[in-house]
């Protein structure tokens, strides 16, 4: 391998070498890819295919109750309120959480773009939750925002509320935990996208008399839109597969019975592996649908922004 490349390389420049390799397609350096491809085939593609095969081998119990032959698992998924409702429950949590994280991070990233005292401190504090982890966040929410927690005590003593707020063991608890873990991430990403926008565009618009709103909506936002779509997708993916907080600070048998919880029930409690795989795969599909919609929207947005510039 080394001799071949060493021999071919010196006489020609990198460009022509690349062209020839592109023509030939494969060469010994591609051996570098082999471990990664073997790995992904063995640990990702094979299990996935196996899992898909499992979904077509429903347990007898499922076939008896739901019918549908080899598709019984899917019949059950769409027919059983326990599983199908959780698609809606998951979307109801993940979409608002991701939207909030992105929308709240935009103004903050813009405000924190300028230099001022204490910027470092605030940026550090905003990023701190990454080290907290879901479990400490959940535990902290239970203690801090629980019925007798500091938050409720303070609000009661200030006379803002009469009754303790129900902030945990329900939908709000999970939403809060998703915001705490997802927001710093969105903030970091959007900040970096924002710093990639050439500030002279903004200055040029200002010198032409554009106001704050015009500059934001006609310049910053269109340039930021692809980054926003990416950020939305990434926070959405995180929020969509929420499991620990849905169990710990949510109401896992009621309003926060998300798909992950359902899949785990089948896997770890009922040992119905085919059904667990079915739920897992449907979950991936549902997520990809949302991601595809956002990507489609992004392609429209992007065209719009270039059109505007031209």
């Amino acid at each position: 391998m080394t001799t071949a490349t060493a021999r071919t390389k010196p006489p020609r420049g990198s460009a022509s070498l690349r062209h020839r390799l592109a023509d030939r397609g494969i060469d010994s350096q591609l051996l570098f890819l082999v471990p990664a491809i073997v790995f992904i085939l063995a640990l990702f593609v094979y299990p996935f295919a196996y899992g898909f095969g499992l979904t077509l081998q429903p347990s007898e119990e499922t076939v008896d109750r739901w019918g549908g032959g080899i598709l019984a698992n899917y019949v059950r998924f769409f027919g059983d309120a326990f599983t199908f409702e959780s698609v809606w429950l998951t979307a109801r949590l993940a979409i608002p959480a991701a939207l909030f994280n992105v929308l709240a991070a935009i103004p903050l990233a813009i405000k924190l773009k300028h230099r001022f005292r204490g910027k470092r401190l605030i940026s550090t504090l905003l990023v701190l939750p990454i080290t907290l982890g879901t479990v400490l966040t959940a535990q902290g929410l239970l203690i801090f925002a629980g019925r007798q927690g500091w938050l409720n005590q303070a609000l009661l003593n200030l006379g803002i509320i009469d009754q303790p707020l129900e902030l945990v063991h329900n939908y709000i608890g999970v939403l809060l935990s998703l915001i705490i873990s997802g927001f710093p991430f969105a903030f970091l990403l959007i900040s970096s996208y924002l710093s990639g926008i050439d500030p002279s565009l903004d200055r040029a618009a200002r010198s032409l008399g554009a106001g704050w709103g015009q500059r934001f909506f006609r310049i910053t936002l269109p340039l930021l839109a692809p980054g926003l779509a990416t950020t939305f997708i990434l926070t959405f993916v995180l929020a969509f597969s929420v499991f620990p907080s849905a169990t710990l600070v949510g109401d896992p048998s009621g309003s926060t019975r998300v798909l992950a919880v359902v899949a785990y029930r089948f896997f770890g409690e009922q040992f119905d592996y085919p059904m667990a795989s079915t739920v897992a795969i449907m979950m991936g599909l549902a997520e990809l649908v949302v991601v595809a919609i956002v990507l489609l929207g992004r392609s429209f947005l992007y065209k719009g922004s270039t059109g505007g510039k031209g």
């Binding site: 990702f44 299990p47 896997f267 991936g284």
Partner: peptide
């Protein structure tokens, strides 16, 4: 490098990051 199916290979490497961990986790654990 440029090589045949490069896009497919790249997409294959991207999938485990985009797909929820549980989706591939449960078949893998099985």
């Amino acid at each position: 490098r440029q090589f045949p199916f490069k896009r497919a290979v790249t997409a294959l490497f991207l999938l485990p990051v985009i797909i929820p961990p549980i989706t591939f986790g449960i078949p893998l654990a099985t």
